[in-house]
Amino acid sequence: MKRRDFLKSTAVFVSGAAVSLSALELIDPQELLAANPELRWGFLVNTHNCVGCGFCVKACKTENDIPMNANVTRTWVERYVITKDGEVVMDTPKGALNGFTNKQLDQNKSGMRDIPDADVAQAFFVPKLCNHCDTPACVQVCPVGATYQTKDGAVLVDRKWCIGCGYCIMGCPYGVRFFHPEEHVADKCTFCYHRISNGGDTACAQACPFDARQIGNLRDPNDPVAKAVMNQRVGVLRDEYGTKPQVFYLGLSKEVR
């Protein structure tokens, strides 16, 4: 082989290999997300405002046809009572479907717990719902592609495709997923995708009399939720899991898990 031929064929081979390598390069989801900068749903929970009435839970169950009496819910409210000794007592009777009407805290097997007012240092309510994470652990574990994230950030379940294996229910660090007792598939908060996509509010946010819940577009700098996330001291749940939750809390306390 002449030197000229060798160089020629080497150049052809290298450029050819470079083309096929670039075709094989994995596409970064972040890049794809940046390609759609107009809309990314986010949620703001103001825990200072929540009074534990549970109207959000009732509205969510009605709106999304979750059986009222089944012990599953897409959103719930937790009550935290921190005593002067530093003990943290938490309860959420029926997910606060009927609100909090009793001073006693439901401690499941150990019965009802009475804490005298004089022993209470702090007491507050924390609404919970799906965090619609940027890197959702539940989506990654689905073996059949039944749960996924839309380009505007909502994590949804394809009811026709779900085989009910329950991996996603175990995979979610926040415990927001459950097995739907009637549909027999995994179920979760959709951010009321049918409402927000048609210009509405989520059922829980519209039912809240105290503006403790708000949905908004994180990509719109004039959106009240985006403004609060940018300008105020917000926290997210279980940041250490790396799921990048998109439900932001005002007044989040370290006791909240």
């Binding site: 596409i27 970064d28 989801p29 794809l32 997300l33 759609n36 509205a59 009605t62 709106e63 999304n64 890197t135 959702p136 989506v139 990654q140 592609g145 039944a146 749960t147 996924y148 994230q149 839309t150 380009k151 949804l156 394809d158 009811r159 026709k160 495709w161 959709t190 009321c192 995708y193 049918h194 409402r195 996509s197 048609n198 509405g200 059922a203 519209q206 039912a207």
Partner: peptide
């Protein structure tokens, strides 16, 4: 779909099915 293989592997028409879910409130 839009979120790549890791987060967006799904049946695209399901997004529309969720958008068409009837609102009660």
């Amino acid at each position: 779909q839009d979120r790549g293989y890791t987060f967006g592997y799904h049946r695209l028409s399901n997004e529309q099915e969720w958008k068409d879910y009837p609102a009660k409130y």
